[in-house]
Design a protein around this nucleic acid. Structure first.
Lengths: 126, 126
DNA sequence: TTGTCTCTACGAAGGAATTCGTATTGACAC
DNA sequence: GTGTCAATACGAATTCCTTCGTAGAGACAA
């Protein structure tokens, strides 16, 4: 049983996203939300493994267990970005942003939003 | 033999980074560059697998083979960012940028650089 | 030729991720 | 009690990643 901080796999991340969106959920609810790609038992197994890994918490007080993401969406997102930054971009946020802009057709609204983000950062520091 | 577009694994990415930095290289050169973490044969095996996957090209004209990254660093970076965008951020570049800024202690110089990136984007579109 | 290096090829082992089938258990109605 | 339904537990099969040991081929010196 290893303790902490591993990157969730793709399948695990898909489940986490459901849990973040729905809040605490049963296996059946998660499986249904994920459509017909994954069978009930597959989702169950994944959630069991994720419980061991402490990626989710399990409430066993009723017969039908209820699962909940152990880390917030925010924390997890940040961790994944950190990881990409380290593995790919030498820790340079600017390089990452450059590629993010290149990778998407960013709308003017989004660009404005990003500008505001930056402004709020620089504003404080100056 | 499957054809295209899979995400390089962590170990594969580490090798690609060496190839991008050094240009076409032999197994020995890559292994040395990667320090003593991975043995010669491990690097060799990975490069062989990566050749099958078409992640690298192999020049076999001399006895000592020479390997070269098949995709540019730029393309690969973009692909990895795209993947993260899809899997984690619903395709929203703004969300990703927000987390990138939160994840690093960004220097004022970097923020300025990012601002310029954005400005060049908005400037062209307006 | 024989020996020594250095290379590639190959395979095997271990571990993790993913899938799903089957068994078992608990709840509840009848 | 029995039957039925829905849940969890368990384990097997498959595939991929990663590592490394060992074998064999090529080059070259003595």
């Amino acid at each position: 049983m290893k303790a902490l901080r591993r990157k969730p796999t793709d399948a695990e991340l898909a489940i986490l996203r459901v849990l973040w969106a729905r809040g605490p959920s049963t296996v059946r609810q998660v499986a249904e939300e994920m459509g017909r790609e994954s069978s009930y038992t597959t989702v169950l197994k994944l959630l069991q493994i994720m419980t061991e890994k402490r990626l989710v918490r399990r409430d066993e007080s009723s017969r039908t267990h209820v699962y909940e993401a152990a880390s917030s969406q925010d924390q997890t997102e940040r961790q994944l970005v950190s990881d990409l930054l380290d593995r790919v971009f030498d820790g340079s946020a600017a390089k990452l942003v450059l590629q993010a802009l290149a990778a998407t057709k960013t709308t003017p609204e989004e660009l404005d939003e990003i500008k505001r983000l930056i402004a709020s950062r620089t504003g404080g520091a100056r």
